[in-house]
Design a protein around this nucleic acid. Structure first.
Length: 568
RNA sequence: CGGGGUGUAGCGCAGUCUGGUAGCGUACCUGGUUUGGGACCAGGGGGUCGAAGGUUCGAAUCCUUUCACCCCGACCA
């Protein structure tokens, strides 16, 4: 490709709203351009990178025996109603009507479509397992798109769906996909961690996320400094919290505690550690058809993990309850405790409080707390894991210290089980001729997001630094001055020769000054540049390594073999 | 969805308070001189000032409505 034929509008200045390096450089170097909130065009080089990533993903997927398909973007709402997700998915699901006023959605994910596709066509255990995947555009109407293509509304992902006759087969595929994803991200050259994750609205269990560690990540990751344990904070577990501080032994009693509506005040009042107090977090849970106030009880020195809390009560969403709502059901903010609650009130208690004694908690009476309380006699179903793990906690596997880091999610694999097949009536006959819903797994890779992640993981103050796996071109041949006929001819000759042998080269034949060309090379970030310039008079050209910015001089008769050797 | 901000040439911005011929940098076009780190000289093109309505002799500027984009938060299979 000649630069004069390439549409690559580079700029000196970044768009004012670009914050992250990946956003700035992808726009400045002419890889992508924005045309609406969370909507981006891929310019030629952006498309090349996207295709390079796509090819790696496809290659590894095909090796596992999965089949590539292509499902539509516009989906009849009825399919989403069958699975029940039409009402559950929330505002990220863009709903629209056609001319006949029928409801449709733009596909944010394709479980419904793929189940509908195989329903009635795969009807025997002999046809299983089967894995179908696609690499295509999705749409999620994000509340707040940001960070360029890292969190766009329209994006490209690889989503695969596997069908199985039993759980073992599903788990085997899950493990195969974990191994496959490791290969994909390793080939891309990324530093990633596989973490336990929350399954979110998609449902299912035992999901794992693939996280690229990055300061600009949107997810909090807990990693153990000592062992392999790593988890998204939404799903992380810890060794049970303990304390050396003396137990405030006391008989059950009620105390007048004026002005003690925070845990700090209560602990101070009784001169005990916050560890021995019970915190009540009052939330309003939103369900498909109703709302209710729910209370979550934790240790005074723990914080509520909202995703865990949401999962505990099965709500679509948790919001803060306001004072009026709290009052209305007879609760007193600041003095709320688990004992003596009205039977109609829904509440959950953190697992770690189970059977604990000598606790201080609100008495559900204005300015009164109970002391010497024991967490006995609550129904087992009240107990859930609710705490937010922090870096002061210890690993439940090895006792090691935790570290909290930021990560960008680039892959997520789920064991869906029979959820979708049951809801949508997708069944097969097993060995005994019995009707069974499929077991399913689903597996996603954020292909367009990876374009940004590659830059986020590899750039410097001058621009992008692409690796050989993803770069649009391996080599940029810079003709310093196209009016110098020797330079122009030599540049063209070596370009033709390499191109004919299938090397990925770009010839910068623009009528620009040397400075512009070298800066564009650094901004765009091809792995290598060949400078054909003033050294040519002495029979020399220079090879530049983008990563190190080192320039090495070679004689004109050796350079081509050298390049062939490097790019081999 | 809550709080805040910004819309003026392709891009980055000034002008708005205090109404009076729409500007600067950069990019672009033409000619010339340059040619190893984003050159210089000369000439030139490009705007319904986000949109609609109002006040006024006169609106980028004042008033009302509206749309878009961005930031913080909530949210994010």
């Amino acid at each position: 490709m000649k630069f004069t034929n390439l549409f690559a509008p580079t700029t000196k200045e970044a768009p004012k709203d670009a914050l992250l390096p990946s956003h700035k450089y992808l726009v400045r170097a002419g890889f992508v351009s924005q045309y609406g909130s969370g909507l981006y065009n891929y310019l030629p080089m952006g498309k090349m990178v996207l295709d390079n990533i796509r090819d790696i993903v496809k290659d590894e997927m095909d090796k596992t025996g999965a089949c590539e398909i292509k499902m539509g973007v516009v989906i009849p709402a009825d399919l989403w109603k069958q699975s029940g997700r039409y009402s559950v998915f929330g505002k990220e699901l863009l709903r629209l009507n056609d001319r006949k006023n029928n409801n449709f959605v733009l596909g944010p994910t394709h479980e419904e479509v793929v189940v509908d596709m195989v329903r009635g066509k795969i009807n025997s255990y002999k046809q299983l397992p089967m894995h179908l995947y696609q690499i295509t555009t999705k749409f999620r109407d994000e509340a707040r798109p940001r960070y360029g293509i890292l969190r766009g509304r329209e994006f490209i992902m690889k989503d695969g769906y596997s069908f199985h006759a039993n759980e073992e087969s599903m788990q085997k595929e899950f493990d195969l996909m974990e191994a496959t994803y490791r290969k994909i991200f390793t080939r891309l050259g990324l530093d990633f961690r596989v973490v336990s994750a929350d399954s979110g609205a998609i449902g299912g269990s035992g999901s794992k996320e693939f996280m690229v560690l990055a300061n600009n990540g949107e997810d909090d990751i807990i990693t153990c400094k000592n062992c392999e344990y790593a988890a998204n904070i939404e799903a992380s577990i810890r060794a049970k919290k303990t304390t050396q501080i003396e137990i405030p032994k006391a008989n059950m009693a009620k105390f007048h505690t004026p002005n003690c509506n925070t845990i700090t005040d209560v602990a101070k009042f009784f001169k005990v550690d916050e560890f021995y107090t019970v915190k009540a977090v009052i939330k309003k849970a939103i369900y498909v058809d109703k709302e209710e106030v729910v209370i979550f009880f934790l240790r005074g020195n723990d914080n509520l993990q909202e995703t865990k809390a949401q999962n505990a009560c099965g709500a679509l969403e948790l919001i803060n309850a306001n004072e009026e709502e709290i009052k209305k059901i007879g609760l007193i903010a600041g003095y709320c405790g688990p004992f003596g609650l009205n039977e109609s009130i829904n509440f959950f208690i953190d697992n770690e409080l189970k059977d604990e004694k000598n606790l201080i908690c609100g008495a559900n009476e204005y300015e009164y707390h109970n002391i010497g309380m024991s967490m006995l006699n609550f129904n087992e179903s009240r107990y859930r894991d609710l705490v937010e793990v922090s870096d002061s906690d210890r690993c439940s596997y090895c006792g090691g210290e935790f570290e909290v880091t930021k990560g960008i999610e680039v892959g997520h694999i789920f064991q869906l089980g029979q959820k979708y097949a049951k809801e949508m009536g997708a069944t097969f006959l097993d060995e005994n001729g019995k009707t069974k819903p499929f077991y399913m797994g689903c597996y996603g890779v954020g292909v367009s997001r990876l374009v940004a992640v590659m830059v986020e993981a590899s750039h410097d103050e001058k621009g992008c630094i692409w690796n050989r796996q993803t770069t649009p071109f391996d080599l940029d041949i810079i003709i310093s001055n196209i009016k110098n006929s020797d330079e122009f001819e030599f540049g063209n000759r070596i370009y033709q020769s390499l191109k004919e042998d299938g090397y990925s080269v770009l010839l910068d034949d623009r009528k620009e000054r040397f400075g512009s060309k070298i800066r564009d090379f650094e901004l765009i970030g091809f792995p290598y540049a060949l400078i054909v310039g003033k050294g040519l008079k002495e029979g020399n050209v220079e090879l530049v390594n983008r990563k190190t910015l080192e320039k090495t001089s070679f004689s004109v008769d050796k350079i081509e073999n050298k390049i062939r050797e490097i790019l081999a």
